[in-house]
Write a protein that binds this DNA or RNA. Sequence first.
DNA 1: CAGGATCCAAATGGATACTG
DNA 2: CAGTATCCATTTGGATCCTG
Lengths: 136, 136
Amino acid sequence: MSETTVGRRPAAPADPAAACPIAPVVDIVFSRWTTPILWCLHRFGRQRFVELHRRIPAVTPKVLTQRLRQLERDGLVVRTYHPEVPPRVEYEISDLGLSLAPLFAGLAHWAADNLDRVEDARRAYDATEHRPARRG
Amino acid sequence: MSETTVGRRPAAPADPAAACPIAPVVDIVFSRWTTPILWCLHRFGRQRFVELHRRIPAVTPKVLTQRLRQLERDGLVVRTYHPEVPPRVEYEISDLGLSLAPLFAGLAHWAADNLDRVEDARRAYDATEHRPARRG
DNA sequence: CAGGATCCAAATGGATACTG
DNA sequence: CAGTATCCATTTGGATCCTG
């Protein structure tokens, strides 16, 4: 399981898909960093590794590479290697990747509508006696 | 950060949200196990801890509890405790949680349409020379 | 520049035992 | 039943160094 599962969910003992039809998609589309990467690629178009890294500084080059490989393998991103010196590699979103756009838009819409409700819920929850605990 | 970040993404050094407007939602809705849990609650209605666990056997009670707490805190799930003997606790999806239904439907739809494209892409990718590597 | 290789710290998740 | 507490194995991501 060397390359196939890196960055993806740690290979659940049994598969969550049995209990949830959309689990596979979630695994593919919402693995760590994939959303920022896809969004950047969609928003700013084709770009080189460093540019992408500049937009998402929180991820290390190593991990960024891993995620890009994963996305490339899943057909959501296209990687183009230009054998020059210095080497130039460009990443762009694929048609398949683009087909996710409406979904992302839906997410963004839901966020705009309900994110503050979540925050309210959190405050309300934290205000009750369940609080951080740590005291028994 | 004891209770706030458990099960959620490990507190990124800087926030990915800066590079992606939907990152917060992803964190809330697509944390590990949350999709199966929400889907089960939506599909089978209000149910007790054990029932839920029976539908999602792959998760351990400990983790299931953590995730349910998280969802409760975020206002996506409602927990009802009946102080009886033996104790009875019921979980159900909240209105806020229900508002995610269209999104989930969209996901399911995308999966139905494109999941095999992803599989194809994977096969194609694995068929090329990048393969598992491990040889230089 | 674009990464691969290594080594290491942190964190999640599992197993088990115990409680109200 | 519905958890909580503890201990431990695996995994993941970060730091650093190196190469074509």
